[in-house]
Design a protein around this nucleic acid. Structure first.
Length: 253
DNA sequence: ATGCCGCTTTGAAAGCGA
């Protein structure tokens, strides 16, 4: 089984990249973030023509998440139950015998800002909800754009901003792993300075000035069947790329 | 340094992302 996550920064603009990538990689499931499109504008026909089913939770201009699957997903859930939020950031579905939760975590803008407080509130609500989800679905993957670089090695040494690397954000990440979730990327040997996002500006990709903020966390039941996890930088090298690269997890399941 | 890039909404310029 192959499961991937990718912040596409506008599904409309990135649709050709997504279709090419599906054809090349043939994942069983692909979680997408930052669709920036309403549900009525979701390019369902094109995705179905590529041999995929899709469930989505979109809104105008901002946010928006989707799960694409080769076989029909079931038990689709949207948003965090009990957390009042206009922003469409979560979709979950059962794919085969795996529960896949796809999230676009808040950016947070700057430590101490109003958006930062929202980020921490959102993370607390997600964590509380996931505890219940894990109880119901022992085989669970939390995938998405976390907007958190969990350790120092996940940020370029010259990263000067505190957002994405601050102690409260990293504490929130650890609260998620404390539920019994494991960062699948770190189950395997990885290149030095492996990142999943690079700013469009200042030649950041060329200089590998990036952050690893896109993650797949797996529940304890899935750790033994993880086979490989990697960042696929190829789509970041195309014309008009997303600023994020897909992260791919392969499992013996 | 934070203007830089890119996307979106509107209708040339501003907000936002990370």
């Amino acid at each position: 089984m192959k499961i991937a996550t990718w912040n596409v920064n506008s599904l409309k603009v990135r649709l050709p990249h997504v279709l090419d990538w599906l054809a090349a990689e043939q994942p069983d499931a692909l979680g997408l973030q930052e669709l920036k499109c309403e549900d009525k504008a979701f390019p369902l026909a094109e995705i179905e023509a590529a041999g995929y089913e899709a469930v989505f939770n979109g809104q105008k201009t901002y946010n928006g998440v989707a799960i694409l699957t080769r076989t029909k997903a079931s038990a689709v859930a949207r948003d965090i139950p009990g957390f009042a939020d206009e922003q469409r950031r979560v979709i979950a579905a059962t794919v085969g015998d795996v529960r896949l939760v796809c999230g676009y975590f808040p950016n947070g803008q700057a430590v101490g800002s109003e958006k930062f407080a929202y980020k921490l509130d959102w993370l607390a609500a997600l964590t509380a909800w996931l505890q219940d989800e894990l109880a119901q679905h022992p085989r669970l993957i939390l995938a998405g754009d976390f907007n958190i670089a969990p350790e120092d090695r996940d940020a370029h040494p010259d990263w000067k901003e505190t957002i994405h690397v601050s102690p409260p954000e990293r504490d929130a990440f650890r609260a998620l792993t404390a539920l019994g979730l494991t960062d699948a990327f770190r189950l395997f040997e990885q290149p030095e300075q492996a990142y999943s996002w690079w700013d469009y500006r200042m030649g950041a990709f060329r200089r590998n000035f990036g952050l690893r903020i896109d993650h797949l966390l797996v529940s304890a039941a899935l750790v033994p069947v993880c086979r490989a996890c990697r960042v696929d930088k190829a789509p970041r090298k195309l014309e008009r790329p997303s600023d994020h690269a897909p992260v791919v997890l392969e499992l013996d399941a």
